[in-house]
């Protein structure tokens, strides 16, 4: 199966230092891939580059039929292909949950508001937060906010979904729910790439793990392979730290 998301030799410099030194990876439809690494390894930079939020110095990113090149602004089309769920959700504080989800449908997709809101409500229902549609972000719990954020990222129906530390704001009981949700999303034909520090969650939910160290992918495989029989020092350090 051909990859929906393909990264080749991604290099990025920030503040005079090499943050990414040639990262390559691919994610196919139906797959959940976890990007792990110590703090500062460059996980978030990879995600932000894929989402078209940050430029990069060299390499290429292909999402479905859209290409992001080095040193150029991301083409607008990338935003229809990639949805992003931020670690702190970044829901629009002045809009209700349903408005957060419907906003891009109305203003980017130019859908009529009733149709957009119906679709937003359906997404919120699917994610189990339909009852909170009229709540403002500050009235939502961490778990609810995350579900609304996922619904918002899915509103434009992007085939690729990126999640930055999705378990960070969840208590352990909620992580199981999130895992099931992500599996369902992948099963519907999407490619999911997430960063995580949580090896239990990754074991339970990811198909593959990439270990990022010093701006490079140093190890790659199934969670069972990589996390149970780590070969690289960085992976062992990661597991030992519990970081």
């Amino acid at each position: 199966m051909s990859a929906l998301l393909r990264v080749d030799g991604l290099r990025a410099r920030r503040g005079g230092a090499d943050v990414l030194r040639g990262v390559s990876c691919a994610v196919t439809r139906g797959e959940v891939v976890a990007l792990m690494g110590l703090s500062g390894a460059g996980k978030t930079t990879v995600l932000r580059a894929l989402a078209g939020l940050e430029p990069f110095e060299a390499g290429e990113i292909r999402v479905d039929d859209v290409t992001l090149g080095a040193g150029r602004a991301a083409p607008p089309a990338v935003h229809r292909k990639v949805g992003m769920v931020f670690q702190f959700h970044h829901l629009f504080e002045h809009y209700t949950a349903i408005e957060n989800v419907a906003l891009a449908l109305v203003h980017v997709q130019r859908e009529a508001r009733p149709a957009a809101e119906a679709r937003a409500q359906a997404l919120l229902d699917e994610l189990g937060v339909g009852a909170r549609a009229r709540a403002l972000p500050r009235e939502l719990s961490g778990g609810e906010a995350q579900r609304v954020a996922i619904a918002r990222a899915l509103a434009m129906d992007p085939p690729v979904l990126l999640l930055d530390e999705p378990t960070a704001s969840l208590d352990p009981a909620r992580r199981g729910d999130l895992g099931r949700t992500l599996r369902t999303l992948a099963a519907s034909g999407r490619a999911l790439l997430m960063t995580s520090h949580d090896d239990d969650f990754v074991r339970a939910c990811a198909d593959r793990v990439l270990i990022l160290a010093d701006g490079e992918v140093v190890e790659e495989g199934t969670p069972a392979d990589v996390l149970e029989r780590p070969r690289h020092a960085a992976t062992r350090a990661l597991l030992a730290n519990g970081d």
Partner: peptide, 14 residues
């Protein structure tokens, strides 16, 4: 206004 709000809006294609 937090930068995250603007990033979130950018990823939605505004």
């Amino acid at each position: 206004v937090p930068k995250g709000q603007l990033d979130a809006a950018r990823t939605l294609g505004f």
